[in-house]
Computed example of a mutant assay.
Amino acid sequence: MTRVWILPTLLVLCGSAVATGLILRGSPGPAVAFLVFFVLLAGAHSPVVFPKSIGALEAQRRSAVDGRPVVFWRPGCTYCLRLRIRLGRSARQLHWVNIWRDPAGAAAVRAANDGNETVPTVFVAGRPHVNPDPEWVREQLS
């Protein structure tokens, strides 16, 4: 559970260190800008940005019932973040599985990617698609 917060915490700490250094040098304006930038960056890489993750088995069960895609992701992945941001509000319609929290999800991704944990891996109708175009994923929701 705490592993997903390591990167956001480090980003906030680094931003705080840079801001402190700028304040000590007499530059409070840029210090605030740096701190805000690092806090926003930390927020973007935190689990808060993504819809609530569920287990791989539950996601596959729900997908079989409603036909919606299953997205396997992990915090800190820039490609996952790009997919999430570009999907916008449509992202809430997908089933999200955090592979760092769910060993079955990580195993499913490895099975689809020749042993690699390449994310985002989107399963549509049981077929994996690695790092698909967000527009294509949005079309799969229709």
Rank of each mutant, 00 (worst) to 15 (best):
Val124Thr: 12
Arg127Pro: 07
Gly105Ser: 04
Glu117Gln: 13
Asn116His: 14
Gly126Phe: 08
Thr118Ala: 10
Gly105Arg: 08
Phe123Gly: 03
Asp102Arg: 06
Gly115Tyr: 08
Asn116Ala: 14
Pro134Thr: 14
Ser142Asn: 12
Arg138Tyr: 00
Arg110Thr: 00
Glu135Leu: 12
Gln140Thr: 04
Pro132Asn: 11
Val109Ala: 08
Arg110Asn: 01
Ala125Cys: 09
Asn113Thr: 15
Leu141Phe: 04
Pro134Ile: 00
Gln140Trp: 01
Ala104Glu: 15
Thr121Ile: 07
Ala104Lys: 06
Val109Pro: 01
Arg138Glu: 10
Ser142Arg: 15
Asp102Lys: 06
Arg110Trp: 00
Pro128Tyr: 09
Pro134Leu: 11
Ala111Tyr: 01
Ala125Lys: 14
Pro120Leu: 01
Asn116Ile: 09
Gly115Glu: 09
Val122Ser: 06
Gly115Ser: 08
Pro128Arg: 12
Pro134Tyr: 01
Val119Ile: 06
Glu135Ala: 15
Pro103Trp: 00
Ala107Thr: 08
Leu141Met: 07
Arg127Gly: 04
Leu141Trp: 01
Arg110Lys: 13
Ala106Pro: 10
Ala125Gln: 13
Pro132Ser: 13
Asp133Cys: 12
Glu117Lys: 11
Arg110Phe: 02
Arg110Pro: 00
Asp133Pro: 03
Glu139Met: 12
Ser142Val: 14
Asn113Asp: 06
Val109Asn: 01
Ala106Asp: 14
Ala107Leu: 07
Val130Leu: 08
Arg127Lys: 15
Val130Tyr: 00
Ala112Met: 02
Gly115Asp: 10
Gln140Leu: 08
Ala108Leu: 13
Asp114Ala: 14
Arg138Leu: 12
Ser142Asp: 12
Thr118Lys: 02
Val109Gly: 03
Val119Gly: 10
Val130Met: 10
Asp114Gln: 14
Val137Cys: 06
Ala106Gly: 15
Asp102Ala: 06
Ala111Ser: 15
Pro128Glu: 13
Pro132Tyr: 01
Gly115His: 13
